[in-house]
Protein backbone atom coordinates (compact mmCIF):
# COMPACT_ATOMS: atom_id res chain seq x y z
CA UNK A 1 0.00 0.00 0.00
CA UNK A 2 1.10 3.50 -0.77
CA UNK A 3 -1.47 6.26 -0.37
CA UNK A 4 -0.73 9.96 -0.37
CA UNK A 5 -3.19 12.45 1.10
CA UNK A 6 -2.80 16.14 0.24
CA UNK A 7 -3.81 17.09 3.76
CA UNK A 8 -3.05 15.03 6.83
CA UNK A 9 -5.87 16.99 8.44
CA UNK A 10 -8.52 14.86 6.72
CA UNK A 11 -7.42 11.61 8.35
CA UNK A 12 -6.80 13.44 11.63
CA UNK A 13 -10.39 14.73 11.67
CA UNK A 14 -11.85 11.35 10.71
CA UNK A 15 -9.95 9.48 13.42
CA UNK A 16 -10.69 12.18 15.96
CA UNK A 17 -14.41 11.88 15.15
CA UNK A 18 -14.59 8.12 15.68
CA UNK A 19 -11.95 7.34 18.31
CA UNK A 20 -14.34 7.68 21.26
CA UNK A 21 -16.83 5.31 19.65
CA UNK A 22 -14.53 2.55 18.44
CA UNK A 23 -11.06 1.65 19.68
CA UNK A 24 -9.36 -1.06 17.61
CA UNK A 25 -10.25 -1.21 13.92
CA UNK A 26 -9.21 -2.86 10.72
CA UNK A 27 -8.46 -0.46 7.89
CA UNK A 28 -9.30 -2.60 4.88
CA UNK A 29 -7.18 -1.56 1.93
CA UNK A 30 -7.82 -2.61 -1.64
CA UNK A 31 -7.58 -0.97 -5.05
CA UNK A 32 -10.82 0.97 -4.49
CA UNK A 33 -9.51 2.70 -1.37
CA UNK A 34 -9.37 2.40 2.40
CA UNK A 35 -12.48 1.30 4.29
CA UNK A 36 -13.29 0.79 7.94
CA UNK A 37 -16.32 -0.73 9.58
CA UNK A 38 -16.64 -1.12 13.33
CA UNK A 39 -19.29 -1.27 16.01
CA UNK A 40 -19.02 0.35 19.40
CA UNK A 41 -18.65 -1.96 22.41
CA UNK A 42 -22.35 -1.99 23.15
CA UNK A 43 -23.19 -2.86 19.50
CA UNK A 44 -25.66 0.01 19.35
CA UNK A 45 -23.73 2.16 16.88
CA UNK A 46 -21.70 1.33 13.80
CA UNK A 47 -19.10 3.43 12.01
CA UNK A 48 -18.47 2.98 8.32
CA UNK A 49 -15.74 5.00 6.66
CA UNK A 50 -14.74 4.92 3.02
CA UNK A 51 -11.78 6.87 1.72
CA UNK A 52 -11.91 6.26 -2.02
CA UNK A 53 -8.74 5.83 -4.00
CA UNK A 54 -9.61 9.14 -5.75
CA UNK A 55 -9.21 10.94 -2.42
CA UNK A 56 -5.52 10.06 -2.58
CA UNK A 57 -2.97 11.06 -5.15
CA UNK A 58 -1.38 8.74 -5.92
CA UNK A 59 -3.06 5.62 -4.54
CA UNK A 60 -1.60 2.18 -5.01
CA UNK A 61 -2.70 -1.05 -3.34
CA UNK A 62 -1.43 -4.20 -5.02
CA UNK A 63 -2.88 -6.69 -2.60
CA UNK A 64 -5.87 -6.54 -0.24
CA UNK A 65 -4.61 -5.96 3.28
CA UNK A 66 -6.26 -5.29 6.62
CA UNK A 67 -4.34 -2.92 8.86
CA UNK A 68 -5.41 -3.55 12.45
CA UNK A 69 -4.83 -0.28 14.24
CA UNK A 70 -5.55 1.05 17.71
CA UNK A 71 -7.15 4.44 17.07
CA UNK A 72 -5.72 6.09 20.14
CA UNK A 73 -2.22 5.11 18.94
CA UNK A 74 -3.04 6.40 15.47
CA UNK A 75 -4.29 9.67 16.94
CA UNK A 76 -1.06 10.11 18.92
CA UNK A 77 0.90 9.88 15.69
CA UNK A 78 -1.50 12.02 13.64
CA UNK A 79 -1.18 14.77 16.24
CA UNK A 80 2.49 14.92 15.22
CA UNK A 81 1.40 16.12 11.77
CA UNK A 82 0.71 19.75 10.96
CA UNK A 83 -2.74 20.18 9.43
CA UNK A 84 -1.34 21.26 6.08
CA UNK A 85 1.22 18.44 5.89
CA UNK A 86 1.08 15.92 3.10
CA UNK A 87 0.52 12.44 4.54
CA UNK A 88 1.70 9.22 2.94
CA UNK A 89 0.57 5.86 4.33
CA UNK A 90 2.69 2.85 3.49
CA UNK A 91 2.48 -0.84 4.31
CA UNK A 92 4.04 -4.04 2.97
CA UNK A 93 2.20 -7.14 1.80
CA UNK A 94 2.14 -8.87 5.18
CA UNK A 95 2.82 -5.90 7.39
CA UNK A 96 3.79 -5.70 11.07
CA UNK A 97 3.62 -1.92 10.97
CA UNK A 98 2.03 0.88 9.01
CA UNK A 99 4.35 3.70 8.09
CA UNK A 100 3.19 7.32 8.11
CA UNK A 101 5.25 10.07 6.49
CA UNK A 102 4.39 13.73 6.99
CA UNK A 103 5.87 16.26 4.61
CA UNK A 104 5.59 19.98 5.00
CA UNK A 105 4.80 21.70 1.72
CA UNK A 106 6.41 24.90 2.98
CA UNK A 107 9.60 23.63 4.55
CA UNK A 108 11.86 20.66 3.96
CA UNK A 109 10.77 18.87 7.11
CA UNK A 110 9.97 15.19 6.73
CA UNK A 111 8.63 13.19 9.69
CA UNK A 112 8.28 9.43 9.73
CA UNK A 113 6.39 7.21 12.14
CA UNK A 114 5.61 3.50 12.33
CA UNK A 115 2.62 2.15 14.22
CA UNK A 116 2.60 -1.48 15.27
CA UNK A 117 -0.34 -3.38 13.83
CA UNK A 118 -2.71 -5.63 15.73
CA UNK A 119 -4.54 -8.78 14.75
CA UNK A 120 -8.18 -7.79 15.01
CA UNK A 121 -10.88 -10.36 14.51
CA UNK A 122 -13.76 -8.10 13.63
CA UNK A 123 -17.09 -9.23 12.30
CA UNK A 124 -18.11 -7.46 9.13
CA UNK A 125 -21.79 -6.66 8.82
CA UNK A 126 -23.69 -6.59 5.55
CA UNK A 127 -25.66 -3.36 5.31
CA UNK A 128 -28.17 -3.60 2.48
CA UNK A 129 -28.93 -0.68 0.18
CA UNK A 130 -31.98 0.90 1.78
CA UNK A 131 -34.70 3.14 0.36
CA UNK A 132 -35.27 5.36 3.36
CA UNK A 133 -38.69 6.85 4.17
CA UNK A 134 -37.12 10.20 5.00
CA UNK A 135 -33.83 11.77 3.99
CA UNK A 136 -32.98 15.04 5.68
CA UNK A 137 -30.03 17.10 4.64
CA UNK A 138 -29.13 19.99 6.93
CA UNK A 139 -26.18 22.03 8.18
CA UNK A 140 -23.93 19.78 10.27
CA UNK A 141 -23.54 22.55 12.86
CA UNK A 142 -27.32 22.83 13.21
CA UNK A 143 -27.67 19.10 13.90
CA UNK A 144 -24.83 19.27 16.42
CA UNK A 145 -26.49 22.15 18.19
CA UNK A 146 -29.87 20.39 18.40
CA UNK A 147 -28.29 17.23 19.84
CA UNK A 148 -26.23 19.17 22.38
CA UNK A 149 -29.23 21.25 23.44
CA UNK A 150 -31.57 18.30 23.86
CA UNK A 151 -29.11 16.10 25.77
CA UNK A 152 -29.28 18.68 28.56
CA UNK A 153 -32.90 17.60 29.07
CA UNK A 154 -33.04 13.95 28.19
CA UNK A 155 -31.18 10.78 27.25
CA UNK A 156 -33.34 10.19 24.19
CA UNK A 157 -34.67 12.12 21.25
CA UNK A 158 -37.67 11.34 19.07
CA UNK A 159 -37.06 12.26 15.45
CA UNK A 160 -40.29 12.65 13.53
CA UNK A 161 -40.34 13.44 9.83
CA UNK A 162 -43.62 14.49 8.24
CA UNK A 163 -44.55 16.69 5.31
CA UNK A 164 -44.61 19.58 7.79
CA UNK A 165 -40.94 19.17 8.58
CA UNK A 166 -38.66 17.29 10.92
CA UNK A 167 -39.19 17.50 14.66
CA UNK A 168 -36.59 16.59 17.26
CA UNK A 169 -38.28 16.26 20.63
CA UNK A 170 -37.39 15.02 24.06
CA UNK A 171 -38.80 14.84 27.54
CA UNK A 172 -36.92 14.61 30.80
CA UNK A 173 -37.15 15.27 34.52
CA UNK A 174 -37.08 19.05 34.20
CA UNK A 175 -39.51 19.25 31.28
CA UNK A 176 -39.78 18.88 27.54
CA UNK A 177 -38.07 20.34 24.50
CA UNK A 178 -38.57 20.26 20.75
CA UNK A 179 -36.91 21.76 17.70
CA UNK A 180 -38.74 21.69 14.36
CA UNK A 181 -37.05 22.36 11.03
CA UNK A 182 -38.87 22.94 7.77
CA UNK A 183 -37.47 22.61 4.28
CA UNK A 184 -35.60 25.81 3.60
CA UNK A 185 -33.67 27.11 0.63
CA UNK A 186 -31.24 29.95 1.11
CA UNK A 187 -30.03 31.14 -2.29
CA UNK A 188 -27.35 33.37 -0.79
CA UNK A 189 -26.07 30.76 1.64
CA UNK A 190 -26.84 27.27 0.28
CA UNK A 191 -24.85 25.76 3.15
CA UNK A 192 -27.81 26.71 5.37
CA UNK A 193 -30.33 24.74 3.30
CA UNK A 194 -32.56 22.19 4.94
CA UNK A 195 -33.91 19.63 2.53
CA UNK A 196 -36.45 17.02 3.55
CA UNK A 197 -37.24 14.24 1.06
CA UNK A 198 -40.10 12.14 2.32
CA UNK A 199 -41.79 9.07 0.88
CA UNK A 200 -43.74 8.37 4.05
CA UNK A 201 -43.87 9.84 7.55
CA UNK A 202 -41.54 8.22 10.05
CA UNK A 203 -40.91 8.57 13.79
CA UNK A 204 -38.11 6.88 15.70
CA UNK A 205 -36.41 7.31 19.07
CA UNK A 206 -32.64 7.36 19.56
CA UNK A 207 -30.13 7.70 22.34
CA UNK A 208 -28.71 11.23 22.30
CA UNK A 209 -25.38 10.14 23.75
CA UNK A 210 -24.49 8.44 20.46
CA UNK A 211 -25.79 11.27 18.29
CA UNK A 212 -23.69 13.79 20.20
CA UNK A 213 -20.73 11.49 19.61
CA UNK A 214 -21.41 11.31 15.86
CA UNK A 215 -21.48 15.11 15.74
CA UNK A 216 -17.74 15.14 16.43
CA UNK A 217 -17.54 14.65 12.66
CA UNK A 218 -19.18 18.04 12.05
CA UNK A 219 -15.84 19.60 11.11
CA UNK A 220 -15.54 17.23 8.15
CA UNK A 221 -18.48 18.51 6.16
CA UNK A 222 -20.79 21.51 6.17
CA UNK A 223 -23.78 19.27 5.64
CA UNK A 224 -25.05 16.15 7.35
CA UNK A 225 -27.60 13.73 5.95
CA UNK A 226 -30.02 11.84 8.20
CA UNK A 227 -31.81 8.85 6.70
CA UNK A 228 -34.73 7.28 8.53
CA UNK A 229 -37.05 4.37 7.99
CA UNK A 230 -39.22 2.50 10.44
CA UNK A 231 -37.52 -0.48 11.98
CA UNK A 232 -34.03 0.17 10.65
CA UNK A 233 -31.07 2.01 12.14
CA UNK A 234 -30.70 5.72 11.51
CA UNK A 235 -27.97 6.62 9.02
CA UNK A 236 -26.02 9.80 9.75
CA UNK A 237 -23.75 10.61 6.83
CA UNK A 238 -20.97 13.14 6.39
CA UNK A 239 -19.89 13.33 2.76
CA UNK A 240 -16.24 13.95 2.04
CA UNK A 241 -14.54 15.00 -1.20
CA UNK A 242 -14.19 12.47 -4.07
CA UNK A 243 -17.22 10.37 -2.99
CA UNK A 244 -15.54 9.40 0.26
CA UNK A 245 -17.72 9.36 3.35
CA UNK A 246 -18.03 8.84 7.06
CA UNK A 247 -21.28 7.12 8.03
CA UNK A 248 -22.73 6.30 11.40
CA UNK A 249 -25.58 3.88 11.96
CA UNK A 250 -27.58 3.99 15.17
CA UNK A 251 -30.08 1.36 16.26
CA UNK A 252 -33.34 2.85 17.50
CA UNK A 253 -34.95 2.49 20.89
CA UNK A 254 -38.28 0.75 20.85
CA UNK A 255 -41.26 0.70 23.21
CA UNK A 256 -42.33 -2.40 25.11
Amino acid sequence: LEARLEQANLLKKVVDAIKDLVQDCNFDCNDSGIALQAMDNSHVALVSMMLKAESFSPFRCDRNIALGINLSSLMKVLRCAQNEDILTLKADDAPDVVNLVFESSESDRLSEYDIKLMDIDQEHLGIPETEYSATISMPAAEFQRICRDLIALSESVAIEATKEGVKFSCSGDIGNGAVTLRSHTNVEKPELNVDIALSEPVALTFSLKYLVNFCKASGLSGTVKLCLSSEVPLLVEYTLASNSYLRFYLAPKIGD
Binding site: E123, G126, A251, D256
Partner: peptide
Protein backbone atom coordinates in the same frame (compact mmCIF):
# COMPACT_ATOMS: atom_id res chain seq x y z
CA UNK B 1 -39.34 3.42 28.97
CA UNK B 2 -38.05 2.53 25.51
CA UNK B 3 -35.42 -0.14 25.28
CA UNK B 4 -32.29 -0.02 23.18
CA UNK B 5 -31.93 -2.45 20.27
CA UNK B 6 -28.52 -3.42 18.93
CA UNK B 7 -27.27 -3.01 15.37
CA UNK B 8 -26.86 -6.78 15.17
CA UNK B 9 -30.61 -7.24 15.19
CA UNK B 10 -30.75 -5.54 11.79
CA UNK B 11 -27.57 -6.33 9.95
CA UNK B 12 -26.18 -9.80 9.40
CA UNK B 13 -22.56 -10.69 9.83
CA UNK B 14 -20.91 -11.58 6.53
Amino acid sequence: QASQITILVYYRAQ
